[in-house]
């Protein structure tokens, strides 16, 4: 019998137990509030659907106290509402055309790359999903807005279907944002990712410019087994525009 095991453990002092309890309760409460704080939905709401905000007590405590001063420094920032839980409305891959100084295509790369190993392909799929995030654009108001004196009418960037199955980014006046169908645009994060990735490929392949084209296809639903939709296998190409290397 070793001396280590023959000696019973020293009891913890009450003070340590109180400190430990306070830490455990505080820590787990912060985690729980982070999990409660996000929006939920979409829920049916007056004939449509809407996302609902999380409870105010969770939002207030998390945003002002626990997230900036505790959870973010510890990088425990995920709220466990996993994106993977939500079936994606579409699948995406993207193609990058690398060009020379005359604009001629020198190489075309597709991502995810079928020849890459599983782990790299997985990360490329994550990037492709990040590029596929679009957000709705508020439609033009019923009454036309006038620009401020001496200033031009503000514009907003939207996806414009110049030809069937092809979208290009286009700036339009706020008064001219279409209502039907509703306009959408890439998120700022998606645009940032596209620009950053094109810069990376230009550096790596010594290209003078690059053009990124996103390809998306809608998800296949079980009812498509019985009655396939005509547009089910249509591929939508979205051009993010050219990047010129500095």
């Amino acid at each position: 019998m070793s001396s280590m095991q023959a000696r019973p453990p020293r009891p913890l002092p009450r003070g340590l137990k109180i400190v430990g309890s306070i830490f455990a309760v505080g820590h787990l409460t912060a985690i729980l509030l982070l999990a409660l704080e996000p929006q939920s939905g979409p829920w049916p709401f007056y004939g449509g659907e809407t996302m609902m905000e999380g409870p105010q007590f969770a939002k207030s405590i998390t945003s002002t106290l626990t997230y900036p001063y505790y959870l973010q420094p510890l990088r425990m920032t995920h709220n466990y509402h996993f994106m993977a839980n939500r079936p994606a409305p579409y699948a995406a891959y993207f193609v990058v055309h690398l060009k020379d100084e005359f604009g001629g295509v020198i190489q075309t790369l597709k991502f995810p790359d079928a020849k890459a190993n599983f782990w790299v392909r997985h990360r490329q799929e994550i990037l492709a999903r990040g590029l596929a995030e679009d957000q709705p654009v508020p439609p033009a108001r019923i009454t036309e807005q006038l620009p401020a004196a001496g200033k031009e009418m503000p514009t907003v960037e939207i996806w414009d279907m110049s030809e069937p199955g092809t979208l290009h980014l286009k700036h339009v006046d706020e008064n001219k944002v279409p209502r039907n169908p509703p306009a959408v645009r890439p998120t700022e994060g998606a645009k940032l990712l596209a620009q950053a990735y094109m810069r990376h490929l230009c550096r790596e392949h010594r290209a003078r410019s690059a053009e990124l084209v996103r390809h998306t296809r809608e998800k296949v639903t079980p009812t498509d087994m019985i009655a396939p939709r005509p547009e089910l296998f249509d591929e939508l190409k979205s051009h993010f525009g050219d990047y010129r290397a500095k």
Binding site: R75, M76, H78, M83, R123, I126, L127, G130, L193
Partner: peptide, 16 residues
Amino acid sequence: PAISYEADYLLAILAF
């Protein structure tokens, strides 16, 4: 953020 994968954050929890 370009390769940010949700499960990576779970590893950070274990490490903590």
